[in-house]
Write a protein that binds this DNA or RNA. Structure first.
Length: 479
RNA sequence: GCCCCCAUAGCUCAGUUGGAAGAGCACCUGACUCUUAAUCAGGGUGUCCCAGGUUCAAGCCCUGGUGGGGGUACCA
């Protein structure tokens, strides 16, 4: 069937070529986009000005010798009216050989039909691209979730909601850059191909550089390179880019994801809390025009200051353990009793994250602060409580969305922490990074924000796949 | 990785107790010079995801697989 529909279109293509039509055109100068044309419709119609627009035909209403079609470009759609006695028999024949999905350009004048529909009376018609495959149906569109991910172009053609999500994503990233640039942060790019993948836990993807005869890893985080730039004297920097983790997929996890990392010299994690609050407010004001919105039925309020709970208080509430008095060993025991998996002697961070997320009753943003040092190999200890670190994680809508700390800048302690972390595992220590610290890194605060998750929250998306244009799926044969 | 759910025409979906594969849109043929999800007349175009099995008979029951969704584990 699909083959038959394609064959029918190929037959039309053949017939078009037979009458001298080039079915894959080139440059077509447009006088207006559809939305601009609509905005200035009355004036243009009165001046009887000839306009030229181009787009994809979405609907055709054939009426013998005079027909209507809806032409759509990125900005909107408009009706065109093609009359045989105006365009001539040959052009009208070409029009009859067109299919829904074809791109063409038209020149003509503007008029309103008797029902008031803004329309173009076509004088000249140019085929720009012949579509060989039938598009999804005009009314129900494309709903199949797998096809929407695999053939995102069809999703974008048919689902306004999807287009809105990606426009919101663009806006959020753009606002974030403006926000940071205005505050004198400089955007940098650091390697995605790294000889050693550090700065987070998580399994890396590995690859090989043939010319260098070496194994390389796709980065799991940019952190250790951004800190090398702090050593290099850059005081306010950020990077928005992909990181890659060779782990399972879920509605909150895609193997490649976009992260923002920000570093400020001479600041601490509390400054980053404020920065996070301000950034999210800036975004919400732009997207919603206010600080309150809903995520899948849950009320979210970004009015500052956001709720803050220390990690110890959260644990006290949940497990009746006072880690500040009893130390972290007792917590581990309680966690084990509660069925939390331990990774060797270490508490798996993901379990902790889940535990904390479950603990929060509100979907509004909450900072959990002051994590025990053993969960934070790169964070600075609290001066008055050396078993804890100057760190926060931001939870919102049931998931972790940001992570920040005052950066550890003592090279000897950093090496020790790396060694402790590597115990019993095949991880290597990043000696090159330790060397950089040995040259001296200013005290600094760092912040990481999961951009995809932030977009999820701001667009009401329940799956990360809905905010990534081409989410990772298994390869299949083309049907 | 494990558990649960889903897969029927190009698209959106029905399909009863196991008894001759359906609808709307799209598409094809014809009519139609202001329609707008155009209308009217006619046409069903299919590897019922794949491979086996049970049965006189399988879209439907059973086993295995593939792809997707959700949960769970690893992870952000």
């Amino acid at each position: 069937m699909s083959d038959e529909l394609i064959a029918q279109r190929e037959e039309k293509l053949r017939q078009l070529r037979e009458i001298g039509v080039k079915p894959y055109g080139g440059k077509f100068p447009r006088t207006h986009s559809v939305s601009k044309l609509r905005e200035n419709f009355d004036r243009l119609a009165e001046l009887k000005e000839e306009v030229a627009i181009a787009g994809r035909v979405m609907l055709m209403r054939m009426h013998g010798k005079a027909s209507f079609a809806d032409l759509r470009d990125e900005t909107g759609k408009i009706q065109i009216y093609v009359k045989s006695d105006i365009v001539g028999e040959r052009t009208y024949r070409i029009f009859e050989l067109l299919d829904i999905g074809d791109f063409f350009g038209v020149k003509g004048s503007l008029f309103k039909t008797k029902t008031g529909e803004m329309s173009i009376l076509v004088r000249e018609l140019t085929l720009l691209s012949k579509s060989l495959r039938p598009l999804p149906e005009k009314w129900h569109g494309l709903k199949d979730i797998e096809l929407r991910y695999r053939r995102r172009y069809l999703d974008l053609i048919f689902n306004e909601e999807s287009r809105k999500v990606f426009e919101a994503r663009r806006k959020i990233i753009s606002i974030t850059r403006e926000f940071l640039n205005e505050r004198s942060f400089r955007e940098v790019e650091t390697p995605m191909l790294q000889p050693q993948a550090g700065g987070a836990s998580g399994r890396p993807f590995s690859t090989r550089a043939d010319a260098l005869e070496m194994e390389l890893f796709l980065r799991i985080a940019p952190e250790l390179y951004l800190k090398r730039l702090l050593v290099g004297g850059m005081e306010r920097i950020y990077e928005i880019n992909k990181s890659f983790r060779n782990e399972g997929l879920s509605p909150k996890h895609n193997p490649e994801f976009t992260m923002l990392e920000v570093y400020t010299a001479y600041a601490d994690y509390k400054d980053m809390m404020q920065l996070t609050e301000e950034l999210f407010q800036e975004i919400a004001r732009n997207i919603f025009g206010k600080l309150k919105f809903t995520y899948r039925g849950e009320e979210i309020d970004l009015t500052p200051p956001w709720r803050r709970i220390t990690f110890s208080n959260a644990m006290k509430e949940r497990f009746d353990v006072d880690i500040e008095k009893e130390g972290v060993e007792n917590l581990k025991k309680k966690l084990k009793e509660a069925g939390v998996k331990l990774k060797g002697e270490k508490v798996a961070r993901s379990q902790l994250v889940k535990l904390l997320a479950d603990l929060l009753t509100s979907s509004s943003p909450t900072f959990i602060t002051d994590y025990p040092v053993e969960f934070c190999p790169l964070a600075k200890r609290k001066a008055d409580a050396p078993e804890l670190t100057e760190r926060f994680e931001l939870f919102m809508c049931g998931f972790e969305i940001a992570n920040a700390y005052s950066e550890l800048n003592d090279p000897r302690e950093q090496k020790e922490r790396f060694m402790k972390q590597a115990e019993g595992e095949k991880e290597r220590i990043d000696e090159d990074f330790v060397m950089a610290l040995e040259y001296g890194m200013p005290p600094a605060a760092g912040l990481g924000i999961g951009i995809d998750r932030l977009v999820m929250v701001m667009t009401g998306s329940s799956s990360i796949k809905d905010v990534i244009l081409f989410p990772q799926l298994k390869a299949t044969e083309v049907l």
